[in-house]
Amino acid sequence: MSLDTVVEDIREEANARAEDIRAEGETRAEEIESAAEADAEEIVTEAEAEVEREIEQLREQRLSSAKLEAKQKRLEARRDVLGEVREEVEAELAALEGDSREELTRELLEAASSEFDEGDDVSVYGRADDQALLESILEDYDGYEYAGEYDCLGGVVVESDQSRVRVNNTFDSVLEDVWEDNLQEISNRLFEQ
């Protein structure tokens, strides 16, 4: 065997080995490329799913926020309407005249007088516009006298130093009690729930 033949055999063997390495490299590159494409598809699919979740979450948040804002506006409107109704009731109470005003004032004074002992010196306060009415009513009560004005819609505030008692029987205090006790019913009637 000649040196040329040995060189040729080594060359052929090296070429064959190089061809095998190249074929293995191509196969490995195809495997890596295929795996990378699969990974990329999975990443894209996961990203799309995450974007969809975020969109849905954002939509839910905005929907909840809009519902809350609408509810707050409804409640605010209801509060405004209830406030207007209350103001109208107060205006009607302040505007009561004649027998109706006298009858209510007498009832409130009578209810307050049960808190005081006979013989007590009792001071009665009331709305400035009701002074003449109160002085007229107080003529029927021994030891009771008009003591001055009290900022209210009507009715009386009655007190005595002897019994250390003060009774607020104003239209305002009665309205407050009635309003608080019946607010739910008033609201239901106004808004028909």
Rank of each mutant, 00 (worst) to 15 (best):
S2N: 12
D9G: 12
N15H: 12
A18C: 09
E19L: 08
D20I: 04
E24K: 14
G25W: 14
A29V: 10
I32M: 07
E33P: 02
A38T: 10
A40E: 10
I43F: 12
I43H: 10
I43W: 11
T45S: 13
T45Q: 10
E46V: 08
E48W: 02
E48M: 05
A49Q: 14
A49I: 06
E50M: 14
R53D: 08
E54S: 15
Q57I: 15
Q61C: 05
S65G: 13
L68A: 15
L68S: 14
E69A: 14
A70V: 02
K71S: 10
R74F: 13
L75A: 08
R79I: 04
L82A: 03
E84F: 09
R86S: 13
E87Y: 01
E92M: 08
E92F: 06
A94G: 11
A94N: 08
A94Y: 05
A95D: 07
L96S: 02
S100M: 13
R101Q: 05
T105Q: 04
T105S: 04
R106V: 07
E107H: 08
L108I: 06
L108E: 05
L109T: 03
E110V: 07
A111I: 04
A112D: 04
S114N: 13
F116V: 02
G119Y: 07
D121R: 11
V122G: 04
S123Q: 10
S123P: 03
V124D: 00
V124L: 03
Y125T: 00
G126C: 00
D129C: 05
L133D: 00
D142G: 12
D142S: 14
Y144V: 01
Y144W: 13
Y144C: 08
Y146D: 00
E149S: 13
E149Q: 11
E149M: 03
D151Y: 08
D151P: 12
L153W: 00
L153I: 02
G154R: 00
G154A: 06
V156S: 00
V156P: 00
V156W: 00
V157I: 08
S160Y: 02
S160V: 08
V165W: 01
T170F: 05
T170A: 04
T170P: 06
V174F: 09
L175M: 10
V178W: 14
V178F: 15
E185F: 07
E185G: 06
S187L: 04
R189C: 06
